[in-house]
Nucleic acid binder design. Structure first.
Lengths: 223, 223
DNA sequence: ACAGCATTGTTGTCAATGCCTACATTCCGA
DNA sequence: TCGGAATGTAGGCATTGACAACAATGCTGT
């Protein structure tokens, strides 16, 4: 199988592999279809048979990125451990991926995907959050964390951790090592999830009636 | 001044203005130096006198973006209002900018800037966080929120809000309006800032001694 | 006023890229 | 076996960013 005659055999995978590496260590800007064709020992028009566009290739990279990330998240979430440990593990899995593949992560989150929006990409991009929601629901049912819309709590946690990753790759963390920052944020969020109710600065704490649902915090604008 | 002879007068600003608009509603990919030259009624090599690179122009856009964002944050932080209102206002200012200029925000946070790293860009990119730190310090001194490293608390808040913005522009918020999501996250974080101490699930609440500092939450990895 | 010089803008060129069309080769199922 | 579908090739085209040589302009010191 050394001398390939005409048909490559598995060109799509080869393209995706090289493209992943190129983006991973040089960013999406550095991606060249012609260079990829050269790498694969194939002519410059060949990619069109497998990826309509350059954007289609980038979307495929993003999909693969989400799949790998989702796998890591799912594994962390389904471990045999207390809820807090699993929660922390999920966050650290996300951060770990972000540290290892910042350029890929950037591709995954580029707003560009919003418009072209292949539904496959949309699907995988939601899967990670869904696992987190499931974990939160389980923790709620076990009484480990406070009640409340799990979608919303998951969004809060997800956003916070993703924000740390984003800040880190943008170099806005300064001295702080990313893992420390992530652990800190995760701890903060977890504390918020555990707290039965926030302690308002001066007021007495046991005034309002119901224990759980929408009482905390306000969702509307301050107005 | 209709017929410009040779010298444009203020080409750099003109380039920056058009470039901002181009990026703002089509993304950094859509930016073309030659098109900008056409827009400015100037020849295609002229830009080199003002921006060494295309990247230099993009960096300039990022700097301007941070400056506008910082102005909004500073104004919100320095309002005459209770700390919570100011804190929320800062968060909403950030979100407001992110909603209005997602593409610009993407440019501002692209990891690319980490490597080329014009120190001017680094400086403005930190200014927003510094204002938030100042607000937190003031709130701590007034006893409105708990003690703790203000840099770290600011990072947590900043990351959380930025994460929401990032998720929103990536289309990962689903139904939820971005402002609702942002308000929710801001409320969550504020509650965490106010809480004197987290309520651990099963344990009694008044065991440990000191009221404030590093007792909450754990910064190290779970190990 | 004016000469000299740095700044700014022009023109032409080059290599590279993404995409398109026409064509060649291979694969696979009826 | 044969014919269409899939895959890869070859060439071309418009666009782009960068570069170099050159021209026009503004500024400064005398």
């Amino acid at each position: 199988m050394s001398e390939r005659a005409y048909h490559h055999g598995n060109l799509r995978a080869e393209f995706l592999r090289h493209a992943w590496e190129a983006v991973d260590d040089a960013g999406a800007e550095a991606l060249s279809l012609r260079q990829l064709a050269r790498d694969a020992g194939v002519s410059h028009g060949a990619s069109a048979r497998h990826f309509r566009d350059k954007q289609a290739l980038i979307d495929a990279i993003a999909v693969e990125g989400f799949e790998r990330l989702n796998a890591a998240i799912r594994e962390a979430a389904s471990a045999d451990a207390p809820f807090e440990a699993r929660f922390r593990a999920v966050g650290l899995a996300y951060v770990g991926f972000a540290v290892a593949h910042p350029q890929i992560l950037a591709v995954m989150y580029t707003a560009k995907h919003e418009t072209s929006a292949s539904e496959a990409l949309l699907a995988v991009s939601h899967a990670g959050k869904n696992d987190l929601v499931a974990l939160i629901v389980a923790a709620q049912e076990a009484g480990a964390i406070r009640a409340g819309d799990p979608e919303e709590l998951a969004m809060i946690a997800f956003a916070s951790v993703h924000g740390v990753a984003s800040l880190a790759t943008a170099g806005l963390l300064g001295e702080t090592p990313m893992t420390d920052a992530a652990a800190s944020v995760i701890g903060f969020v977890w504390a918020g999830l555990v707290a039965a109710r926030p302690v308002r600065s001066g007021h007495a704490s046991a005034t309002r009636g119901q224990i759980s649902a929408n009482a905390w915090p306000d969702l509307a604008e301050p107005s």
